[in-house]
Amino acid sequence: MPILHKPEITRVRTAQATQATQATIRCAVGESPIWLAQEAAWYWVDITAKTIWRLDSRGEVKSWQTAEMIGCLSPQVCGGFIAGMESGVFHLHLNENGSVHAQSLAAPTESMAAMRFNDGRCDRQGRFWSGTMLIDMSVPRAAGHLYRYTKEQGISTPIISNLFVQNGLAWSPDGRTMYLSDSHPNSQLIWAFDYDIDSGTPRNQRVFVDMKTMDGRPDGAAIDTDGCYWICANDAGLILRFTPDGKLDRQIAVPMKKLTMCCFGGDKLDTLLVTSIAAGQAPDDEWAGATILLNPGVQGCAETTFAG
């Protein structure tokens, strides 16, 4: 992988420093990183550029263009990916020539005009979850919903509503706690839910962390094997780790101010890939929109493949 340089990354309340490496890929809105162990490769998306990126362990980079903006993707058992896009949920097959075959699976009955799907992933049982948001984030209207999709039941009615910018989906290692955030400045909340693993139903919504009292807005998240919740603090250039009881016990400063999501991967699931946003940042900021790899000193949980 082409490297520009290796800056030190500050780590708070840990005994060992770490470093990050930067690929020369610059994303307008980088998001939804995932690690595919069977390919020893990372995938992530650039939402507004309608691009899927792949980086393998040899440093080889490939990309694919999609017809719609793509907010998130998860691998499928049958091959390819399930994705939340502008008009609904799709199955994507990535062709060798850089094109994408997209098959529509479902769309919400609620209007998708001026909206798109955003953050999403599978629960521990392989159900796909994703939420919608207004494309123009500057509009202060909580029009977004969170949906569940399965092959057997299709797309659900809204499970959670009144969301500005749905984000931060994650599940505890045992799958019995679901996390969700709202990135909008009018919210900046992270919630926890009790999660029924049999029915795929979240209950008992409560505030897990109120980030209005902290630096940055809550964006995408990951879970480690200790059950701790790692959230990207957009606008602050920080990754924050919260224990299962909501205590901040670690933070990592990264060179990108507007980081969006982190994901554990690598052979031992001890590497974090972190995406970020270039849109709206200074043209001479070489880290804006960067995708970096770093060693956080802990092991993460593997992402679940969509069961359909």
Rank of each mutant, 00 (worst) to 15 (best):
D285H: 14
G280D: 11
G280V: 12
G297A: 01
D285F: 14
G300W: 09
A307M: 12
Q281K: 12
G280Q: 10
V298Q: 00
I292H: 04
A302T: 08
N295W: 03
P283I: 06
G280K: 10
V298L: 00
V274L: 10
A302V: 09
I277R: 12
N295G: 09
E303S: 07
A282Q: 14
P296G: 01
L293V: 04
A279D: 15
D285L: 13
L273D: 08
Q299D: 11
L294T: 11
I292Q: 04
G289I: 07
A279P: 07
P296W: 00
G280S: 10
S276D: 08
P283C: 04
L273M: 14
L294W: 06
A307P: 02
T275Q: 07
T291N: 03
W287Q: 10
G297I: 04
Q281Y: 09
Q299P: 01
G297N: 09
A290Q: 02
E303V: 08
Q281E: 15
A282I: 13
T304W: 00
I277K: 14
G289Y: 03
A278C: 11
A279V: 14
A307E: 06
P283L: 03
F306E: 01
T291R: 00
N295K: 12
T291G: 02
F306L: 00
A278H: 15
A290V: 04
S276E: 09
Q299R: 15
A307C: 09
L273G: 08
T305C: 03
G300E: 07
A302N: 02
N295M: 10
A282L: 12
G289R: 07
S276Q: 05
C301D: 01
I292W: 06
A288D: 07
N295D: 14
N295Q: 15
L273P: 13
Q299N: 10
L273Y: 05
A290G: 13
V298Y: 01
L294N: 00
N295I: 04
F306Q: 00
A282P: 11
W287A: 12
V298P: 02
A307F: 06
L273F: 06
D284A: 14
A290H: 01
E286H: 14
G297L: 03
A282G: 10
T304Y: 02
D284G: 10
W287S: 05
S276T: 06
Q299E: 13
V274Q: 03
